[in-house]
Amino acid sequence: MTAKNKELSFETAFNQLEEIVDVLESGDLPLEKSLAQFEEGIKLSRICTEKLEKAQKKIELLLKDSKGNFKFEDLDSDDKEEI
């Protein structure tokens, strides 16, 4: 479960969390299912927070070299990364 959650995008995790909170607040679930949802919700919230900690501030240039490979360059520096 944890490994699977790690691959979640922020958007998916965030939306799932919101759904869980809505369901919990509606009070329509039995106690045990509520508890499971609650735990899942807390997990999702941690994942989202973790992802937020890694927020970026830079802009990269997307270029294509002569061989047609994509190349990245920081807008304000000479760092290069090739894929």
């Binding site: 909170v21 919990l24 607040e25 609650f38 919230s45 927070t49």
Partner: peptide
């Protein structure tokens, strides 16, 4: 906005916690 998202996440947690607490008290 990162800060906006963080406070939204916290409010999700609080809401989940409160509904869980209410459910337990009710039971």
């Amino acid at each position: 906005d990162k800060n906006e998202l963080i406070s939204q996440l916290k409010s999700f947690e609080i809401r989940a916690f409160n509904s869980m607490k209410n459910l337990l008290v009710e039971n």
